[in-house]
Simulated assay, not measured.
Amino acid sequence: MAEKTIMLACNAGMSTSLLVNKMQKAAEAEGIDAKIFATASNAIDKELESEHPDVLMLGPQVRYMFDDLQKRLDIPVEVINMQDYGLMNGANVLKAALKLTEPAE
């Protein structure tokens, strides 16, 4: 089992799937054991139930879901930085996701 499970969500799960590949490459390069996957926004609840991710990262196009998800979930939820998303900067998005899973000091 992976040390960290990171779920990305966007409208259809397509654009975040590209980002997942870049994040997985960045994780492998850093020696980080992470399960990273993408889903469509309408499947978030189902995936939360089956995969139990440590963090949920939302694509900028579904940022409107942030407040509701943050209120009802017991895991960190964040909107992916628009520039990192646009540039498909998997390393930066991975860093942001992992930072959210660190215990508060």
Score class of each variant (00 low, 15 high):
Glu105Gly: 13
Ala40Trp: 05
Ile44Ala: 13
Asp54Pro: 10
Leu94Tyr: 04
Met57Tyr: 04
Asn21Gln: 12
Lys46Gln: 15
Asp54His: 15
Asn89Gly: 13
Asn81Cys: 11
Phe66Ala: 10
Ile32Tyr: 03
Glu105Tyr: 02
Lys4Phe: 08
Met14Gly: 11
Ile6Pro: 02
Pro53Tyr: 12
Asp67Ser: 11
Met14Asp: 00
Asn42Asp: 15
Glu30Asp: 10
Leu94Ala: 14
Glu105Ser: 12
Ser50Pro: 11
Glu28Ala: 15
Glu105Cys: 07
Met57Asp: 08
Ala43Thr: 14
Ala43Lys: 14
Tyr85Phe: 15
Ala40Phe: 06
Gly31Ala: 08
Asp68Met: 03
Met65Phe: 05
Glu105Ile: 10
Ala91Ile: 06
Leu58Trp: 03
Asp45Thr: 15
Ala96Leu: 08
Ala27Arg: 01
Thr39Pro: 13
Ala9Asp: 03
Leu58Ile: 08
Ala104Asp: 07
Ser17Asn: 08
Asn42Arg: 11
Gln83Pro: 04
Arg63Thr: 07
Val79Ala: 13
Met82Ala: 14
Asp74Tyr: 00
Leu8Lys: 03
Tyr85Arg: 08
Met7Ile: 13
Ile36Ala: 04
Ala91Leu: 11
Ala9Leu: 03
Ala9Phe: 07
Gln61Tyr: 08
Gln83Arg: 10
Val79Asn: 04
Lys4Ala: 07
Leu69Lys: 01
Asp33Val: 07
Ile80Ser: 07
Ala29Arg: 02
Leu19Pro: 03
Ala29Val: 01
Ala96Gly: 09
Ala38Pro: 15
Ala97Gln: 05
Arg72Pro: 04
Gly90Glu: 10
Ser15Asn: 01
Glu78Trp: 00
Asp68Lys: 03
Ile75Asp: 01
Asn92Pro: 08
Met1His: 11
Tyr64Met: 08
Gln83Met: 11
Pro53Met: 10
